[in-house]
């Protein structure tokens, strides 16, 4: 069981959270070229090691938070509120930009990401 230190609620079990993916991606400006959208929508740094990622504390405060977690060991290295901290400079892998961006830069995913579910029976090992 992962224990995630929610900056608003304290340390809570992972079952209270839903995963929101890579938090280093930055939404391109309107009218950005197709390559920028391809990079934003599809490409992922996918590091083996510290990974900055979104989690939604749906079973607690209901807020999005950013967690730094090591993908090789599952060790949770830290967490921070989603708001007002996008330029804290902690960027895993060094690949994505941690520089100050326009105001749309560091927001959480536009829509809450539900826990993964598949009910078409299409996928299994």
């Amino acid at each position: 069981m992962l224990l995630i230190p929610c900056p608003h609620c304290g340390e809570r079990a992972q079952v209270e959270f839903a995963y929101g993916g890579d938090a280093t991606k930055r939404r391109p400006a309107d009218g950005a070229p197709d390559e920028a959208w391809y990079e934003y929508v599809y490409l992922r740094g996918n590091p083996r090691g510290p990974h900055r990622e979104w989690w939604l504390h749906h079973g607690g405060c209901g807020r999005w938070i950013r967690v730094i977690r090591d993908t090789a060991t599952h060790a949770v290295l830290g967490a921070e509120p989603a708001i007002d901290s996008r330029d804290s400079g902690v960027v895993p892998g060094g690949s994505a930009s941690g520089e100050p961006r326009e105001e749309e830069g560091g927001g959480p995913p536009a829509a809450p990401v539900p826990p993964p579910r598949r009910d078409t029976g299409a996928g299994e090992g």
Binding site: L2, R69, T71, T73, P115, P116, D119, G121, G125
Partner: peptide, 30 residues
């Protein structure tokens, strides 16, 4: 298998009941 409730069941030739389900859901190489 049931995709709706995330469970896949078979029995191995050794007799073990082999169970699988969904991803844990977070990035991992562990």
């Amino acid at each position: 298998t049931s995709g709706a409730i995330h469970c896949y069941i078979s029995q191995t030739d050794k007799g073990e009941v082999l169970l699988g389900g969904d991803l844990d859901g977070y990035n991992s190489y562990a």
